[in-house]
Computed example of a mutant assay.
Amino acid sequence: MRSEVTVTFKSQPPVRIELHDQPEPMPPEAARRWLDEQFTQMGCEPLRPTGKLLTADKVVVVAEAAGPEKFADAQWAQAFARAVTTALGRPMVNIDVTALSISY
């Protein structure tokens, strides 16, 4: 099954991360933990004023904090894509950082 995460930043070409050669998907608990760790390490803040943090919001905020520079690290980008596809339960994920949105 084809699996890909695309991240779009303003004034940058989209970052495409293909996962077709991955031996196994990341386990769900590991995916959530990885995203939580990145969220904390990067000093991210919830998008919603209520403080409620949906998984999709966390993905967008981590992508925004990482910026194009972090996605240039192929190992980090692969880990991000594996965590995202597992946490969201979708093989194809498009993240628009400028619009703070996700589409499938």
Rank of each mutant, 00 (worst) to 15 (best):
M1V: 11
R2C: 06
S3D: 04
E4G: 03
V5Y: 01
T6I: 14
T6E: 13
T6N: 05
T8P: 03
T8C: 09
K10T: 13
K10F: 10
K10E: 15
S11A: 14
S11Y: 03
P13H: 07
P13V: 01
P14C: 05
P14F: 06
P14G: 08
V15M: 06
V15H: 00
I17L: 13
I17N: 09
I17H: 10
E18S: 12
E18G: 14
L19E: 06
L19Y: 09
H20A: 13
H20L: 02
P23S: 07
E24F: 04
M26D: 06
M26A: 08
M26P: 02
M26N: 06
P27G: 08
P27I: 06
P28Q: 07
E29Q: 12
E29Y: 05
E29A: 09
A31C: 04
R32I: 00
R33M: 05
R33L: 05
W34G: 04
W34K: 12
W34F: 14
L35R: 10
D36R: 10
D36N: 14
E37H: 11
E37N: 05
E37M: 07
E37T: 15
Q38K: 10
Q38H: 06
T40C: 04
T40D: 12
G43K: 12
G43H: 10
G43T: 11
G43F: 10
C44W: 14
E45C: 05
P46S: 06
L47H: 01
L47Y: 00
L47K: 08
L47G: 12
P49N: 03
T50D: 15
T50P: 02
T50L: 03
G51E: 09
G51K: 06
G51H: 06
G51Y: 05
L53I: 13
L53F: 05
L54W: 11
T55R: 06
T55V: 15
A56T: 11
A56C: 10
A56I: 12
D57H: 15
K58G: 09
K58Y: 13
K58P: 09
V59P: 04
V59N: 12
V61P: 00
V61G: 00
V62T: 11
V62P: 01
E64R: 15
E64A: 11
G67S: 06
G67D: 03
G67F: 05
G67M: 08
E69K: 13
F71W: 02
F71M: 08
A72G: 08
D73M: 02
A74T: 14
A74L: 09
W76N: 01
A77G: 04
A77F: 02
F80A: 00
A81E: 02
A81C: 03
A81L: 07
A81K: 05
R82I: 00
R82D: 01
T85W: 00
T85D: 00
T86Y: 08
T86D: 07
T86C: 04
A87Y: 04
L88K: 05
G89Y: 01
R90V: 07
R90M: 05
R90Y: 02
P91S: 12
M92G: 05
V93Y: 00
N94G: 09
N94W: 05
I95V: 14
I95G: 00
I95S: 00
I95T: 07
I95A: 02
D96I: 13
A99R: 15
A99L: 11
L100F: 10
L100D: 14
S101C: 07
S103I: 03
S103F: 03
S103K: 09
Y104T: 09
